[in-house]
């Protein structure tokens, strides 16, 4: 439809070309503007979530408590012990991959699936878990807690 004729353009051809030009321009504008307008629409989740690796502020985590932190697509458990030490372990139970939690009453890391327990060094001390939890590194930058993989 866009072939240029050898002979001088006749009226109908010109009209056709103009229609194509006009239509294509309009479609082009739509094709460019649609993504831009969509982009400008506020997304479902309105804002970026705070980083997984930054585990929040020290003041936000109580003594003798634990917190699950998203580390990539895996959970990490951050524990502030009763003696005010910070520790982080993989929160994936080594038994059957459930997510573990900190139990204040036991003073251990506990897995709800089969009652596996780990001490605060990540060692499996009771129940079915066969291996200790992998430890993560915790660094304190000011008030900010930073969790990273142990090298």
């Amino acid at each position: 439809m866009n072939q240029t004729p050898e002979t001088p353009a006749d009226q109908s051809k010109r009209d056709f070309l103009q229609i194509v030009l006009g239509g294509a321009s309009a479609a082009f504008l739509a094709a460019v503007l649609y993504p831009i307008f969509e982009y400008l629409k506020p997304p479902k989740q309105a804002e970026v979530e705070v980083s997984s690796v930054k585990a929040g502020k020290l003041s936000e985590i109580e003594k003798d408590s634990g917190k699950i932190i998203k580390f990539g697509s895996k959970p990490v458990i951050l524990i502030r012990t009763a003696n005010d030490e910070l520790r982080a372990f993989s929160a994936t139970c080594t038994h059957l991959d459930c997510t573990v939690q900190y139990r204040k009453d036991y003073g251990t890391i506990w897995c709800a699936c089969h009652n596996g327990k780990y001490d605060l060094n990540g060692r499996n001390i009771s129940g079915p878990p066969p291996r200790p939890l992998e430890e993560y590194r915790v660094v304190l930058q000011g008030d900010e807690i930073l969790i990273s993989k142990k090298v």
């Binding site: 993504p35 969509e38 997304p43 989740q45 970026v48 979530e49 705070v50 980083s51």
Partner: peptide
Amino acid sequence: ELAFESIHFIMSKVQFG
């Protein structure tokens, strides 16, 4: 703490991001 996450957010959450 936000730069990487915000690009990730743009790429995965924002329409046409």
